[in-house]
């Protein structure tokens, strides 16, 4: 089973929920941090990393000896990533989406593919918990291809918990698509609610069952709860604001480490999700 943890608004506690749930459940669990722009889960899990891999995406390279300057590559490219100008062909690798169109269309077979570095994937473990995250290279614009690579590490025989990036556009979709359940973490504020509605919209487009966690549940107003009721979204957990939790978080400590009584709650959270997706599938 794959549970994706998303939010719309940033800083609502996705990583807190993902790491605490993963650690509470213990064995046969993998945590994939798909917030490759700003991965944070490792700061709480402290995994021992035993595999580091550089990830690239294919971009064109032109052999000018073979090129006849016909211009077809520039014509097919939707992203202005290759142009024929003057007596030369100029690829702009950072704009390339790796569709392979230019290579396919070239009548002289003058185009081959080389790699543009997207970032790295690191894999490790902590007490039987498998941990994988992607780290986007600073300056790289496109995160979805790296996110998809991180997701290739998901194993069907275990529970996969995905820590998704904030927002509602392509990187978030790449982190939720194909999940069995989406857990949306929000806060009871106007910003939290506005972004929650967008996130719920994205989950609905993908047709995935979802539930809510309200973090800092005692700060703000009750509009998130009213919305949840109206939309029939189950509230699976509420985490009140507690300076002790906030300070522990600031030091890289998990809730279950400073307040062990929360472990039960995260286990129960998982059971509820399991039941809900079971009913959905059977």
């Amino acid at each position: 089973m794959i549970i994706s943890i998303a939010s719309g608004k940033g800083g609502t506690g996705k990583t807190t929920v993902a790491t605490n749930m993963a650690v509470s459940l213990g064995g046969d669990v993998q945590l994939l941090d798909c917030d490759v722009e700003e991965p944070n889960a490792h700061l709480f899990i402290h995994p021992v990393i035993n595999e580091v891999k550089t990830i690239t995406t294919p971009v064109p390279e032109v052999d000018m000896e073979k090129c006849n300057l016909c211009g077809k590559c520039g014509e097919i490219c939707q992203f202005k990533a290759i142009v024929v100008i003057g007596k030369t062909v100029l690829p702009f690798p950072e704009m390339c989406h790796s569709c392979g169109g230019c290579m396919e269309v070239c009548p002289e077979k003058a185009i081959t593919e080389t790699g543009r570095e997207l970032g790295v994937i690191e894999r490790g473990s902590r007490n039987g918990l498998e941990f994988v995250h992607g780290k986007l290279r600073v300056g790289e614009a496109m995160s979805p291809p790296l996110i998809r690579k991180v997701r290739e590490y998901a194993r069907p025989d275990v529970l996969t918990i995905i820590d998704a990036p904030p927002g509602t556009s392509c990187p978030v979709i790449a982190s939720m698509k194909g999940a069995d359940f989406v857990l949306l973490v929000t806060e009871p504020t106007p910003f939290g609610l506005n972004d929650l509605k967008l996130a719920v919209g994205a989950v609905k487009i993908l047709g995935i069952p979802c539930g809510l966690i309200i973090n800092r549940s005692d700060m703000g107003d009750d509009k998130v709860k009213i919305y949840a009721e109206k939309e029939n979204l189950p509230i699976l957990m509420e985490i009140p604001f507690d300076r002790k939790i906030a300070e522990a978080y600031s030091r890289g400590e998990m809730i279950v480490e400073v307040m062990p009584e929360w472990k039960e709650k995260f286990l129960k959270l998982y059971q509820q999700i399991e039941e809900m997706s079971f009913h959905k599938n059977h």
């Binding site: 800083g11 990583t15 722009e37 700003e38 944070n40 700061l43 709480f44 600073v138 300056g139 978080y249 600031s250 030091r251 890289g252």
Partner: peptide, 21 residues
């Protein structure tokens, strides 16, 4: 930035990004 391990980590990457551009 916020004074947390995540805040620091993310701030460092975004400082690098600003320098890059």
């Amino acid at each position: 930035a916020e004074p947390t391990v995540s805040g620091r980590h993310d701030m460092e990457r975004v400082v690098e990004l600003a320098a890059f551009f």
